[in-house]
């Protein structure tokens, strides 16, 4: 047992180290290449173009990558746990659809021009919260927690939202269309420092709160009823965790757009490598999601430099390939359990 804990601790430390390394690597990569050796002197000097690039552009981007990647992946791990369904991801419940619809509506009405660009994350957040509210009201109705019903409602809301959005896109101008498409594909480019900080603090708070429920989540692997025989208040646990996961997802989507695949694939990868114990899964997923997004962002920024690819394209392609490789390597060794 002690050996197992030790192995897991090493694993966690290893990802943490990778996160740090990839962050440093990401600092040096970009249109203006800054060599690794120069980074510390530049930051010490506190002036010049390169200092500005590092502190105003690249560091906030790395922070946002860690916060968004961590949150989405953590939410995926939590939701896959409470729904006991390996295909659930943060966007399954329609949160991204709601946020996207909110943003599309704002762009079509031209509010981002009249009021200012900061209305976009606000509209996204309102859209996300509306979806969460609908799913929770319908799902938690009459004191029940009918998880399958919630899942179906989320999927349906997602469909309704995406159809409404397509309707908006089909009647709007080419310019608005371009804006909506780019927002949907996601980007870590966020000029508003406050939003970056909010996302970071929210992601850390989400990790801390969900970690308190790591052992109840472990018990929920046996099912809601069996967990309650082990003294877990299944309904309360599921509700709190559902709210944590959806709030985190809502914040991420509003700030960074719909960055797909992180919340589905990273928890699976971590589970395949480290097993399904949530005490390690939660932290592992958080760090793994951050790592994955930092690296995806480096690729998105550099591959067609000086232009930038939407990060969603990279996460989808890289995530899918990575997952197939790891799956074929680990599946035979460790049975895959949720």
């Amino acid at each position: 047992m002690i050996k197992k804990h030790l192995r897991w601790s090493w694993f966690t430390l290893a990802i943490l180290l990778l996160v740090v390394l990839s962050a440093v690597f990401s600092l040096s990569m970009g249109e203006a290449s800054i060599s690794l050796r120069d980074i510390i002197p530049i930051i010490r000097a506190k002036e010049g173009m390169e200092y500005f690039i590092l502190t105003q552009i690249r560091i906030p981007r790395i922070i946002l990558a860690i916060a968004v990647g961590g949150s989405l992946s953590l939410s995926g791990a939590i939701l896959q746990g409470i729904f006991r369904n390996p295909l659930v991801e943060p966007y399954t419940l329609g949160i991204s659809g709601g946020a996207a619809l909110g943003v599309a509506l704002t762009i079509v009405m031209g509010l981002h021009v009249t009021i200012g660009a900061y209305i976009l994350p606000v509209a996204g957040f309102i859209g996300a919260m509306t979806t969460i509210l609908l799913v929770s009201i319908l799902g938690f109705l009459r004191g029940g927690t009918d998880l399958n019903k919630m899942l179906l409602i989320g999927v349906m809301i997602s469909f309704v939202a995406s159809s409404s959005m397509m309707f908006l896109m089909s009647v709007t101008t080419a310019e608005s269309l371009h804006g909506i498409v780019f927002w949907i594909m996601g980007s870590l480019d966020e000029p508003n420092k406050m939003l970056v900080h909010i996302t970071l603090y929210a992601s850390i708070a989400g990790l801390a709160i969900s970690y308190l429920f790591a052992r109840p989540l472990n018990a929920l692997r046996l099912g809601e009823i069996k967990a309650s025989y082990l003294g877990i208040n299944s309904k309360t646990t599921i509700r709190i965790l559902f709210l944590v996961a959806s709030l985190l997802t809502g914040i991420c989507v509003s700030v960074a757009g719909v960055i797909g695949f992180v919340g589905l694939v990273i928890p699976h990868l971590i589970r395949l490598i480290a097993g399904s114990d949530y005490r390690y899964m939660l932290i592992g997923s958080f760090l793994g999601g951050g790592l994955f997004l930092i690296l995806s962002d480096v690729i998105a920024r550099t591959i067609i430099s000086p232009n930038e690819l939407p990060i969603g394209i990279i996460t989808g392609m890289a995530g899918g390939l990575l997952f197939i490789i790891v799956l074929s390597k680990f599946r035979s060794r460790r049975e895959h359990g949720v």
């Binding site: 052992r215 472990n218 692997r221 082990l230 399904s276 359990g337």
Partner: peptide
């Protein structure tokens, strides 16, 4: 119904009713 959980971890879950709020292990 215990999917891919190690037997020892599975049996240890029987100790869940005795855990403290901030006791992770």
């Amino acid at each position: 119904d215990a999917a891919g959980i190690a037997v020892e971890d599975y049996v240890l879950m029987g100790r869940l009713p005795y855990r403290e709020t901030f006791q992770f292990f």
